[in-house]
Design a protein around this nucleic acid. Structure first.
Lengths: 261, 261
DNA sequence: CGCTAGGTTGAATACGCTCAAAGATCGTGG
DNA sequence: CCACGATCTTTGAGCGTATTCAACCTAGCG
């Protein structure tokens, strides 16, 4: 891990960008959030930096790069639980759950801001509205995870894969990491398999089928969603990040618009 | 729904009981928590009272009875996401996620305290430590759910079922709803199947096998865990509710003790 | 008594797994 | 610049878990 010291305008930090997009932040709120960004470190690709059953004392904000949270099973297999993308907070419960029941690894080279869990207490007292925002973030995460995880129960491998890619796309779009319908994903098929609970062989065949059906295109970590509408139908995808403009509406149409544009 | 007005000592409310067990509450804290218990209503069995995609404005604390959170799929199947037992809070994110992306039904006759999500703001300002406790509760729920859901990916039907029963047992034990290794569960095999993502036929065969292996006994909604140690091994079960006394220890032995006694 | 909801069992099928082997791609060192 | 190993991807074949369809059983209740 190397320490860095960039000079980047406040609005460019992914966490701020994300919060701002969901509901505008005041300058005071941004100032308080920036306190969490005071120390940034760089972590090389493929380094495990939070260990299952270890006592952790720090929270991280992903500024660039990807990380993932996973469990190791007795049979040697591993289950990837979720991916941390730019703007995401790693171990948001560290304050109250000092012991990790999972591991976290960097996937690509990772720039993260580090802050002490206690900082959240200061943050909440300084800007109570931010506490609610934090809660809201947890709420989204919960909703997203519920849908992904329950999907494992009834969605087919084909649908699950479509679902997962759409979810990645939507989250990356929030922090402007997409170009058209294309995004960069530093994932191997083995990792996808570990995420969706499939064997690597079946994962490969499923991707092949999605490609043959002209729904996606993947080459050298570049994922292109060729037919969003059909993909959403296949996956029975439901958008999770409702923007400010959508708060009042609840039609399927608006939910689809969020990801379609 | 019928309104009631019981006169029960503070310490007897399941939520208080649960919080107290995890970490002792001060009298002031109990007083603040009791504000959430001011209005209690009764809901008949098998009534859906939170609808998917509806805008909800209330939170509930389960005082007695069971409820479940579920999704309906396009093919008519339904997925049960989690069960609400005495002491649980229904829709803890209502404050920040006004729109439900799931439905909630009562399973048995339900006694619930109703409070406005806004009450959480007052609660946090009055007793900041309770906010952390609330966060901690969400953290447990997260941890529990992560393990349950990821289990669907790699555990067999047999293991999943063992796991689920152990989880129910531990949660019910926290609020003193178990007798020895026996507990009452108002569930049908269809509901179990919907929870674990299995067909009812396979659910039935799986239960049969657990019975034949003398791990469990089920008759008329009474579940008896015949061999906890073996069941924990089979399920690779990990305890989630770490008591005050266990905070410092992290050995498997202590985790097992929590459920064993 | 017959209806209904829930539980049990059999048989055929399908989705996804394991084992196995062969291509691709990429970085590294000779 | 090519050779080599390592990692990732692709494909084939056989198998097993869980599914669907179907029937029958049981208990509770009007």
């Amino acid at each position: 891990m190397v320490e860095t010291n960039h000079h980047i305008p406040n609005e460019e930090w992914p966490l701020i960008k994300k919060f701002n997009l969901l509901q505008s932040l005041s300058h005071d709120e941004i100032d308080v959030l920036m306190k969490l960004h005071e120390q940034e470190i760089i972590i090389d690709a493929n380094k495990t930096f939070i260990y299952q059953k270890s006592v952790r004392r720090k929270c991280f904000i992903v500024n660039s790069g990807w990380a993932c949270r996973f469990l190791n099973h007795s049979n040697g297999a591993r289950q990837i639980i979720e991916y941390y993308l730019p703007g995401d907070i790693i171990s948001p419960f560290a304050l109250v759950m000092p012991k990790a029941n999972y591991s976290v690894s960097s996937i690509s080279c990772l720039h993260v801001s580090v802050f002490k869990p206690d900082a959240l207490i200061d943050l909440c007292t300084a800007q109570p509205k931010l506490a609610l925002r934090y809660l809201a973030m947890l709420g989204w995460q919960d909703a997203m995870f519920v849908d992904l995880a329950t999907g494992i129960g009834w969605r087919t491998a084909y649908q699950r894969t479509a679902y997962f890619l759409l979810n990645l796309f939507e989250r990356l779009k929030l922090v402007e990491k997409t170009v058209g319908n294309t995004f960069f994903a530093p994932l191997t098929q083995q990792m996808l398999a570990d995420t969706l609970g499939l064997s690597i062989v079946h994962m490969n065949r499923t991707i092949k089928k999605l490609r043959e059906d002209e729904l996606i295109k993947i080459e050298s970590n570049l994922v292109k969603l060729l037919d969003l509408v059909r993909l959403i139908q296949v996956a029975e995808y439901q958008s999770f990040y409702w923007r400010k403009t959508q708060q009042s509406s609840s039609t399927g149409r608006h939910q689809r618009d969020a990801i379609l544009h």
